[in-house]
């Protein structure tokens, strides 16, 4: 079965800190929203191929509303900018999920570590853990205090929450914080990659750490745009595709007429048979099976996972 997918309506949009807005979404047809557990996230399908994941930070018992916190990411491809600048109360938006890769496991005590907007999935965890009577503490870091969202929500937990903006306290003292951990403690961390790496270091070999990573999808490919060789079997040509150059451009530059249209992997016009080599598929058309098979590729965007491709051109 397919995971839930439905049209939601934006009920509220509130600025909760410098650079962060909270969205409240309801089901467009007024029916209850799919249920979820702390740690879950949803996809917002923003159009133009933009799909962004956001953790749910409200109350799982409230089936009438999802709450999300969205940080403006100036380096992003436009997903967060769209949410900040354009999306308005009353707008309808496609939602997929929820799904959960960050499940809250049972433990007698917890330590939570949040960096910036990474606090969002921890909020419902903390609410549940606190209601269940377990011991817990939260170490919450951010750039500056005004940039840190949901401090008001955390206010009621008193000194179990340590708010540590970097401009006043420097880097988080993870080592000191983790000294409180006992043998049964679980550590939940969410935030930027350097923080999570430091947290992994600090936890060492002990299996107590659970993290969720924010990997901005748009940057995944950046370090894979290397050079590779393309052999055109029919024409008997061997070409070198440089970084920042597409297979299509290379083939066209060699004077081989090939049909192409959208040049962004969405129309399928430039699909080409692959005789040897493993394509690095970057189109939006091929199914998972077809990708795995690797016998065909869209040469306007897709590249090579190895050093050489042989194409039926």
């Amino acid at each position: 079965m397919h995971e839930p997918e439905f049209v939601a309506v934006v009920r509220e949009k509130i600025v909760v800190s410098d650079g962060v807005v909270a969205l409240v979404l309801g089901h467009a047809d007024g029916t209850p929203l799919p249920s979820w557990r702390p740690g879950a996230h949803i996809d917002l399908v923003l159009g133009d191929g933009l799909v962004r994941q956001y953790s749910l930070c409200g109350d799982p018992a409230d089936a009438s509303a999802y709450r999300l916190g969205v940080l403006r990411e100036p380096a992003g491809r436009g997903g967060s900018a769209y949410v900040h600048d354009t999306l308005s109360p009353g707008d309808r938006i496609l939602v997929r999920g929820p799904r959960n890769h960050f499940e809250l496991e049972d433990a007698p005590s917890y330590l939570f570590v949040a960096g910036g907007i990474g606090v969002t999935p921890l909020l419902p965890m903390i609410a549940e853990v606190d209601a269940g009577g377990a011991r817990w503490r939260l170490l919450y870091g951010g750039r500056t205090r005004p940039s840190m969202a949901f401090l008001d929500v955390l206010d009621r937990y008193g000194d179990r929450v340590l708010v540590r903006p970097q401009d006043r306290h420097g880097l988080l003292d993870l080592k000191g914080f983790l000294e409180e951990a006992t043998r049964d403690t679980l550590v939940y961390g969410c935030g930027p990659e350097p923080l999570l790496a430091a947290l992994e270091d600090a936890c060492g070999a002990r299996d107590m750490l659970r993290v969720e990573r924010f990997a901005p999808k748009e940057s995944i490919h950046d370090d894979r745009d290397g050079m590779f060789e393309v052999v055109l079997a029919q024409s008997g040509l061997t070409l070198t595709v440089g970084p920042g150059q597409t297979v299509l451009e290379c083939v066209e530059a060699a004077g081989i007429p090939v049909l192409s249209s959208c040049q962004e992997g969405t129309c399928g016009t430039c699909e080409t048979d692959v005789l040897e080599g493993t394509p690095d598929h970057r189109d939006s058309l091929l199914t998972e099976d077809e990708r795995a098979e690797g016998t065909t590729m869209m040469i306007c965007v897709s590249r090579c996972l190895g050093e050489r491709l042989v194409l039926d051109l």
Binding site: E5, V7, V45, G47, R92, I93, L94
Partner: peptide, 9 residues
């Protein structure tokens, strides 16, 4: 004759 999100699905 539709816009996202209805169109997208």
């Amino acid at each position: 004759e539709a816009d996202p999100p209805d169109h997208t699905r």
